[in-house]
Design a protein around this nucleic acid. Structure first.
Length: 453
RNA sequence: GUCCCCUUCGUCUAGUGGUUAGGACACCGGGUUUUCAUCUCGGCAACAGGGGUUCGAAUCCCCUAGGGGACGCCA
């Protein structure tokens, strides 16, 4: 049997880290078994579901390269089938109509909470043998038993069905609800393994029972522990649950993000970095941790720098422009500049920011001690005596700079500090040999001259 | 409140009855050095607590505590 997994977001928001990880693990699991990864939008909440979010989720998955192997399924398009099957459950006696009013239910709930009981429907309509009358909801008759399954991550799970109530499968308006739709669609899509966050654990118990009642084949289940925010709470917009596309525009590389995410709860020996192909080879759900982990921007930044350093600078240039940097590819020594800047950068944004020092001549603060008369004298000598006529490479420029310093009996910082300031207006910048070479003779002279004035 | 899941350095984790409890990020210090960074070397730092089982427990069992989740005519 070929493995089929699915990622099933509800399009009521953007894709964030937690969802991306669920998608990644589902994708990896399918790929590692030579199977298929599918996408299903759980868009039965017509109030909150938005096409804009479907687009955004699709874009995010595309950026992460976690594309589904078949056309995305839109749950809302299967409503008739869901309804038909729900009714079949009623015919079989596995579901019943309930005429409890919302007020009645609220009251029940309030009393239960007051009595420190678990708030849930008490099954009071179970034996009423009601028919649909235009306002009744259809409830699933939860079997009086316990439900067990072998979770691929958590192991044996057994829950007494009394902990779950007779949940609604068809609303008063006749539309089917989530737990029912999800169970049916997983069946119809021939999903072999359902991978999702462990906040779905009780839903799994419900869906397992639905599938049994429908006499379908039970899929395997794997519940991923949650990703918590840095403060240890559930990931929310307030503390770092960014839209995945925000990571792109902030200058993160999708490979780095993916690598970071996969290590949240999964490890292979003492290796930190993996290519996607390695992940496909090594990944297994049984190696996934069962404890929640916290999101760490610091670690993500480290991964991003690692990926930035390894990435070809011409590719980086393309990505830079993709996120709106408008760096001209014909700019003098553009690739060399990126080569140098990427080494210390945490993101494309940082490269872009540092790039400014090459684009713009610095404005020199005359009162800065780096522009003192004494310093100017050293730079003036340098300006007059260093050979700016040669067109050369990085190594030779650096060497000639060293030679100049030795020949003139200077300490490197004596020349270096003011020269760096003259060239960039900054105190932190790439090495001077690199600066001189990348800026080029003409531009270097121009900047030094400006400093000297 | 009830039920479920979870608990190794600050963080991500390795570890499946016998290890000086390992690695990575971060942090701190040394070195290279031309500033920041990179690179390199080193350091700090953990088995939540308590009971068992066992010759021996981070590893198995129980309890407690803590964290997270679920409890909708949302998904």
């Amino acid at each position: 049997m070929t493995e089929r997994t699915r990622f099933a977001p509800s399009p009521t928001g953007h894709l964030h880290i937690g969802g991306a990880r669920t998608a990644l693990f589902s994708w990896l699991f399918a790929k590692s078994k030579g199977g298929q990864f599918l996408l299903r939008f759980e868009d039965t909440d017509t109030e909150r579901s938005k096409d804009e979010f479907k687009d955004s989720i699709l874009k995010s998955l595309e950026w992460l390269n976690l594309n589904p192997d078949e056309e995305p399924v839109h749950q809302s398009r299967n409503l008739e089938r869901h309804k038909f099957l729900a009714l079949s459950l009623f015919e079989k006696g596995a579901a019943y109509y309930c005429d409890c009013s919302i007020e009645e239910l609220e009251e029940l709930r309030a009393t239960q909470i007051k009595n420190k009981q678990k708030p849930m429907y008490d099954g009071r309509s179970r034996e009423k043998n009601l028919e649909y009358e235009g306002k009744n909801v259809l409830r699933y008759k939860m079997p009086k038993a316990s439900t067990s399954f072998e979770d691929l991550i958590l192991g044996d799970i057994t829950v007494d069905n009394r902990e779950l109530d007779d949940f609604i499968i068809l609303r008063a308006d006749g539309t089917p609800t989530y737990n029912f739709c999800a169970a049916v669609d997983d069946l119809d899509m021939k999903i072999s393994t359902v991978i999702r966050g462990d906040d779905h654990l009780t839903n799994t118990i419900k869906q397992l029972n639905i599938i049994k009642s429908l006499e379908g084949n039970l899929p395997n289940y794997a519940h991923l522990p949650m990703v918590l925010s840095e403060s240890g709470k559930r990931l929310s917009k307030r503390d770092g649950a960014l839209d995945i596309m925000d990571y792109k525009s902030e200058g993160y590389l999708s490979g780095a993000l993916l690598n970071y995410i996969v290590r949240l709860g999964w490890a292979k020996d003492e290796v930190e970095k993996f290519t996607m192909n390695e992940l496909i080879d090594f990944f297994d759900l049984s190696d996934v941790n069962s404890s929640p982990s916290k999101f760490s921007l610091q670690l993500l930044d480290w991964y991003n720098n690692e990926y930035l350093k390894e990435m070809d600078s011409s590719t980086l240039l393309k990505l830079l422009n993709e996120i709106g940097s408008n760096i001209n590819e014909n700019f003098k020594n553009i690739l060399g500049i990126i080569d140098v800047l990427k080494v210390g950068a945490k993101s494309l944004k940082e490269i872009e920011e540092s790039f400014d020092m090459f684009l713009k001549s610095p404005s020199i603060d005359k009162s800065d001690s780096l522009a003192s008369e004494e310093n100017k004298k050293i730079i003036k000598d340098f300006f007059d005596n260093f050979d700016f006529s040669k067109d050369e490479n990085l190594e030779s420029t650096s060497q000639r700079l060293k030679d100049y310093i030795n020949y003139n009996d200077l300490k490197f910082p004596q020349l270096g500090k003011p020269l760096r300031y003259a060239l960039t207006g900054r105190t932190n910048a790439p090495g001077l040999g690199e600066l001189l070479y990348l800026l080029g003779n003409e531009e270097s002279r121009k900047r030094i001259k400006n400093y000297l004035e």
